[in-house]
Structures are given as C-alpha cells and as structure tokens.
Write a protein that binds this DNA or RNA. Structure first.
Length: 271
DNA sequence: GTTGACACCTGGACGC
DNA sequence: TGCGTCCAGGTGTCAA
C-alpha cells in the first residue's frame, strides 16, 4: 500500500511531469473518490495550472493557481501519465486532460479520496489538520512519542499506525521499524520506555530514508505506477516473511493480527 | 475517553 | 475448471 515513501516517490515523479501544465478538462468516472461537489470539482479545475505538488504524511497536495487538490491514495491509488488516445482503463476513476497528455487516477479498490479546497482552506482541512508530526520531521523526538503513548494500553504497533500521533507510517514500515527497534508489536504502549521511543525515531528515519531512496516498496498490493517500481521490498526483514527464518537469528518469523492488521515479528529479536 | 468492530471495495489465493 | 470463501489494509464511524 502507499506509505510515506511511496507517496513521496509519486510526488517527485509527478512534479517533474505535470508542473506548469494547464488542465483543459476533467472527467470523473466514480464519484465516490471525490469528497467535494463533483460538478464543481470538474468545472473549477478547468484552466488551472499545476504550480507545485506538496506532501504531508500520506496526503498529496496539488497546488494550482487558485486551489489545492488534496489526494489520499489509501490502499491502491496510483497516478499514470498517458497520451489522450489511450483508452480509459477499468479502474481509472478520474482523468485530468492537460494541454498535451492526460493524468489519470487509478484505484482498484476505490478507497482513495480527493478534495478540492480554496487556498485558505488547506490548514483547516480535517484530514491534514489532525496529522501528527511526520516520521521524517526533524522535530520528531522520542520524548514526543513517549508523551503521546505512555498512558495507553494499546499495542505499540496500533499507536504507531495512528496518523494523529506520527504521520506517514503504514503497516509495512511499522513492522520493519519495530523489528529494527527490537520491540514486540503486541507490547502495551505504556510499557515502552523513553529510550525505546528514541530508538523508534532513529530507526523510523533510517528506514524511511532508505525506502524513499529506493523509490518505495513494491508488493502485491502496491505495484508500479508512473513507470517507477520501488525496490525496498528487497530489504524487508520481517514483513511478508511469515514462516521464513529471521535474517538475524534464524528464528521462524511469526505472523499475528494486531488491531486487525497482519503483523510480522521475530519472537527472539523482539521483546 | 478508550477500545474494538465494522464498512468501504476488488482481485488474488486457496480449498473443495 | 469453476465456484465459494477468505484475506489484504488506511481511514472514518459507531457502539460498547
């Protein structure tokens, strides 16, 4: 699924391709993707030029002359650049016709969302307003995480997936960060020490930096888009490795459900 | 206030 | 081969 590394990769690639291009027409084939009024969404964007693309957490923010178009890829959302003449594929739900090519939003499971905001509405948009500090934010510290979690009985994995605490981590990287930090994903958050929170921050930064430099992770549920295929899956230590030997100690990797999420860990390396 | 269950949605894997 | 069932998971909502 797209996590921060995948979203950042999409942002960088899209930025090179669509900046300074003007929207001539917008077609929406599945209204559920658009949180705003669909007719307004289609008409307001005509004539707008993409002037920048930002990212906060897992949100992509397309900036045009007069609006912000915020887009969350959720589970399987992707963007493709295609020529006008290419036929609309089954799962392409929103198509932006630019001056000399099309930008298409593709989403098999239709979980993704888009919202068109006036320039002064971005900071008050609920999805973005409640985001916690980004996992790669230099202001993120172990103390910040510790203060947020140390009274909770919830498993530490559940807390790290909570975007209002730390934004950007998803199921894959949380498993990897917890492995690198030697913390069991099922441990109650109140039992995680300040020192371990420092370690979580350090390992999160290391893993996300590496994942971004690899272009993200490409697994079954998140395949390539925009001609970019991430390679971080080659570095995964536990995620999707159930039944295989731990690369550090040869113990068989265990899979359980934590907060309804498939969770992978090494029972010897993680305590 | 906290926690867990469920809905959204579709394709792939798996068992029979 | 074909069918039915389960699983995948980010996020919002609702009930306990």
């Amino acid at each position: 699924m797209p996590e921060i590394a995948e979203v950042e990769t999409v942002r960088r690639v899209l930025r090179d391709k669509i900046l300074n291009h003007v929207i001539k027409r917008v077609e929406v084939f599945y209204d559920g993707i658009i949180e705003s009024n669909v007719d307004e969404f289609k008409t307001k964007l005509v004539g707008e030029k993409f002037i920048d693309i930002h990212r906060t957490g897992k949100w992509l923010i397309f900036e045009t002359n007069n609006y912000y178009l915020v887009s969350h890829l959720r589970m399987e959302g992707k963007y493709f650049i295609k020529p006008f003449e290419d036929k609309i594929e089954k799962h392409e739900h929103v198509v932006f016709y630019l001056d000399d090519f099309t930008l298409r939003y593709h989403d098999v499971r239709k979980f993704g969302v888009m919202h068109l905001l006036n320039k002064d509405e971005l900071s008050s948009y609920e999805g973005i307003k409640k985001q916690g500090l980004e996992v790669i934010d230099p202001n993120l510290t172990g103390k910040y995480i510790y203060d947020k979690i140390h009274k909770s009985n919830k498993p530490i994995k559940t807390m790290l997936l909570d975007q209002t605490i730390v934004s950007g981590l998803g199921n894959i990287y949380v498993d990897e960060v917890l492995f690198a930090s030697k913390i069991l994903p099922t441990r109650e958050s109140k039992d995680v020490t300040l020192k371990e929170c420092d370690c979580l921050v350090k390992e999160s930064r290391r893993i996300i930096d590496k994942a971004i430099s690899c272009g993200g992770t490409t697994i079954r549920s998140y395949t390539s888009s925009l001609g970019v295929t991430g390679t971080y899956q080659n570095y995964l230590m536990v995620h999707k490795n159930a039944g295989k030997k731990c690369k550090k100690c040869d113990t068989i990797i265990t899979k359980v459900k934590v907060g309804g999420r498939g969770t992978y860990y090494c029972s010897k390396c993680q305590k």
